[in-house]
Computed example of a mutant assay.
Amino acid sequence: MPGDSGSPLRKLAQRLGVAIALVTFVALSAYLDRGGYSDSDGNGLSLLDSFYYATVTVTTTGYGDIAPQSESARLITTLLVTPARVLFLIVLVGTTLELLAERTRYAYRLSRWRSDLSAHTVVCGFGSKGRAAVHELLARDVPREKIVIIEQDTDARARAAAQGFAVVAGDATRTEVLCEAGVQDAVAVIVAPDRDDAAVLITLTVRELNPTAALAAAVREEENAHLLRQGGADTVITSSGAAGRLLGAATRQPDVVRVLEDLLVSGEGLELIERDVPRDGMSAAEAADGAPIVAIVRDGTPHRFDDPEVATLNAGDRIVCLCSHGD
């Protein structure tokens, strides 16, 4: 969740450090004036006895087997040990109350955040693929506050939070984690984990929770792509296969690969964009407003620009055309 700062464990460690310092202070105070204390067994006060006395004293246990006898020891108890005991209790009670209050504040902030969260995009995984996907979303004017990252890795979560994204810690294959990210209200979900088996399970769970969201998933191996499509992914990207095809093409047609790389980067150079066809009977050239046409999508099925089946367009068709950035 955005806006979280500080670690409960760090705060607890700081309070524990204060408590240990108080016990050590009382133990050393008693040990330095050890002749003024009496032990029930009649022996002198050792360093271990001093720490034992400090522990039972500041925690108000007070077994009474070690007690101050001299005036100096009683003065130390009055002026030093008693304030240390009070401060120890303040630390103990304050830590308990703060932890309870922090949980309440977190639950309240989470509730407020979730109530305002809708029509957002959930990105499952903030590795190299997830970061590239988020960069592309930002380049296509998706507001930063409309992107929610789900990530298990602590370092990756820290990078995402540092960039101002809402971050949910946990395994995206788990239903409760996806629900915490509001996947049921998301307009789009990007599945980009490091493992193909995780991608399949995330896809199945997301589609069960949200049947209508645009769902794009990435896999490493081509043989697993059909599992994602069967699981409900609208678009499946094979990362290793796509990279391999570009590498192969680069050895024979490097200029083509450069153009493809240009197309893959939003916000500069050439861009592929989609346009709606507003009415029946329009030609592709008319709907594209003079831009080169790459494909025509009818009823969710892409057709080549020269396919005779889509020579005449219908309202609701979409054309994919090539434009320069800013057109």
Rank of each mutant, 00 (worst) to 15 (best):
E222Y: 14
T24F: 13
I20T: 11
L138I: 09
V58T: 10
V148M: 03
P68I: 06
K11P: 00
V219T: 12
D255H: 13
R220C: 10
V18T: 13
R157G: 02
V265S: 08
E222C: 12
I190Q: 06
R157P: 06
L87Q: 10
R174P: 10
E180L: 12
G232M: 03
H325F: 10
A107R: 11
A284M: 15
L209A: 07
G269Q: 02
L100H: 02
G269F: 02
S115R: 14
S283V: 07
D4W: 14
G94N: 14
G3T: 02
A133D: 07
D41G: 13
A30Y: 00
T59H: 01
L100P: 03
K146Y: 08
L270T: 13
P308F: 03
P254D: 09
T55W: 09
D49K: 10
I273R: 11
L22A: 06
V122S: 01
A217H: 04
F25Q: 05
G244T: 15
T301Q: 04
V191F: 01
G127I: 01
N210R: 01
R85S: 12
L201H: 09
R114K: 09
A186S: 14
D155Q: 07
D317M: 02
L9H: 07
L87F: 14
V177D: 09
C124H: 04
A186R: 06
D194V: 09
S50V: 01
S40G: 11
D327K: 06
V187R: 03
D306A: 06
E268D: 14
N43A: 12
D171Q: 09
T203V: 03
S50H: 02
P143M: 02
D194N: 15
E274G: 14
E151N: 04
L110N: 05
G300H: 05
I147R: 01
R304V: 08
Q163T: 00
A291F: 04
S128Y: 09
L47Y: 00
T77F: 11
P292M: 01
I20E: 12
T95D: 14
V56I: 13
A285P: 00
E309H: 12
A101D: 14
